[in-house]
Design a protein around this nucleic acid. Structure first.
Lengths: 339, 339
DNA sequence: TTGAAAGCGATACCAT
DNA sequence: ATGGTATCGCTTTCAA
């Protein structure tokens, strides 16, 4: 492998000069600059990340993680992965500070962002979809902070990176799966957290695309459970009562999936209900083993956490700018046998 | 983060002494040794991988990759991932040498192993399942070479690491999927490469476990295609001709899956055939898009390649011994929508 | 505009 | 048995 020193020797300059050229720090005569760039290209120079990392930690890089608290089960796996990755990178000298917020309080999230602004070099955040948050993020980005949104993007923000899943595709996948599992006629009860949440709306949209005009598959009713098990339990009871023809439950978000399933299992029609869900949270896994839930869409929460942290590390410590703005995980289909 | 220097200062010894203790190189007075170990533990010392990597490359680490040539399509993705990871790690100073072998010739693979023995520190190999190969691998392991088997393990070999999939589970998964897709009665034609290949046998075993005694699911016939499209084409034509009741094709290995599918599509019964396969190789993806293949089991070939290379790098360059001996990828279910 | 030197953390080697 | 020193590749700082 070619090193900066070799390039310096070949060009008859010092390492410092080569470094200034390769990192666009200016203060180099244009002709030398050209020569060095050419040489670097010819020799396929690629910086040694270990060298970079060692030098970088003198700058004491810090990343903040801002997430909703553990109340939402799906986040547990993402958090686990983030923590694991943070431990790994800590040994390289990158520090992580954690901020979990109780619910989805815009003011509180804003406040936290204000608080940490001057103390961090990067931010991993599950942003609340609100213009105020977007504005705050733009502020941070303008101040040179490297921002990664996770699991939920915020479109009004300027240059940043997103790690998460493809919600529309998730909806398409669960719909296609239903079609394969059952020839119909299907009378479908759809359960989701809230139509205010963009991701949930996108899933519904994907689902409708797939079911299209097919008369065998009809969305009979839609309920919003605000990602709460108790709400979903009551709402589902009601739903099954009011629509005796429902024979399929599609649960498009995992926040209230346990409540919905419990209501379904309490119904005398439980054996005629086909249930498909999102996310393999612990309660879901149990119900899959028991055969009550037929399949789940798995969104690689672990990979999401790991990738987000890796993007930050590579940027802060190795100076690598991500090659994409959006890192999308595949929507996997899990059944009891391949959980 | 604590460094060796800090420990040295606190213990009133030199960095060299601390290094000798932490890496068990001996030549340190027991009492000092104790003191240093205690201090390291108390301060939660964790070596900085960047420092390690920088120092390690002076030893010029080399890994050899020994694989069957590109004739088997499934390996393409593994090879791509290995190459990508190799490029990444090359910038850290770890070199990779490549050896692809035409077919499954035991003598040739042995010969290669002999050839490279003295020149490498680690080996990634897709071993032919043969006692001679096992013996040769044991020789290398005894000589201190770090060995990773990929996609296919060899049980008689001493301490080494395996990256691949769970074949029995793959069989169970495809069987369970079939049960969900079709209530039966199913008359199943099973196609696989060869019963001599352990992985293929294991998949069949998993499949049989799931179908169990269920009279709705009957394995009508089994054919071996030696992972060759022409053989499988002919054999499948024959199969469909001889067994007019077959309405399901389960293709347990991708080597000849294209041939099998072409034969199926050429049959007048093509619309009554449910086809499930392993691996999303390019021809399979096309046929999934066209709706001819309903689903495929995806074995994360990319993750396999990446993980194998990472294990070698972590060991050679960072001195990290893997925390497990077997790294097993999940058998994912892919349909056209979530490919 | 440029070069020289110190330093990041771990290791290898030489001298004691 | 132990310490000192040079080295890996890169960045930063200071001096010229």
């Amino acid at each position: 492998m070619v090193t900066i020193k070799q390039i310096a020797d070949l060009c008859g300059v010092s390492r410092g000069t080569v470094d200034r050229v390769l990192n666009n720090r200016g203060n180099v005569k244009p002709e030398k600059r050209e020569l060095i760039l050419e040489m670097a290209k010819k020799l396929h120079y690629r910086p040694n990340p270990a060298g970079k990392a060692l030098a970088a930690q003198k700058s004491n890089p810090v990343v903040a993680v801002v997430l909703p608290s553990k109340s939402i089960r799906f986040f547990d796996d993402i958090i686990d992965a983030l923590e694991k990755a943070a431990r790994k990178y800590e040994s390289y000298g990158m520090r992580t500070v954690w901020h979990t917020v109780r619910g989805y309080d815009v003011e509180e999230q804003c406040h936290i962002l204000d608080q940490i602004k001057g103390q961090i070099n990067a931010l991993i955040i599950n942003p609340i979809n609100d213009p105020k948050i977007a504005a705050k993020l733009n502020e941070l980005i303008a101040a040179g902070i490297f921002v990664v949104t996770i699991n939920n993007d915020i479109e009004q923000a300027s240059t940043h990176y997103y790690v998460g899943s493809d919600y529309v595709n998730g909806g398409r996948t669960i719909g296609a799966l239903l079609k394969m599992f059952s020839p119909g006629p299907c009378h479908i009860g759809v359960v989701l957290g809230s139509l205010k949440i963009l991701g949930h709306r996108h899933r519904l949209q994907g689902l409708k695309e797939i079911l299209g005009g097919d008369p065998q598959y009809e969305i009979t009713a839609l309920i919003e459970d605000n990602d709460d098990d108790i709400s979903s339990y009551d709402a589902t009871k009601n739903l099954l009562h009011q629509h005796p023809d429902i024979n399929v439950l599609l649960i498009l978000s995992s926040g209230g999936s346990y409540g919905t399933c419990r209501a379904a299992l309490a119904s005398p029609r439980k054996d005629d209900l086909l249930i498909l869900v999102f996310d393999t949270i612990p309660t879901t896994r149990e119900m899959m083993k028991a055969g009550d839930i037929k399949a789940a869409i798995y969104q690689h929460p672990h990979q999401q956490g790991q990738k987000a942290m890796q993007l930050v590390f590579d940027y802060l410590v190795n100076g690598i700018v991500p090659d994409r703005e959006r890192y999308i995980m595949n929507n996997e289909i899990r059944i009891a046998e391949n959980m």
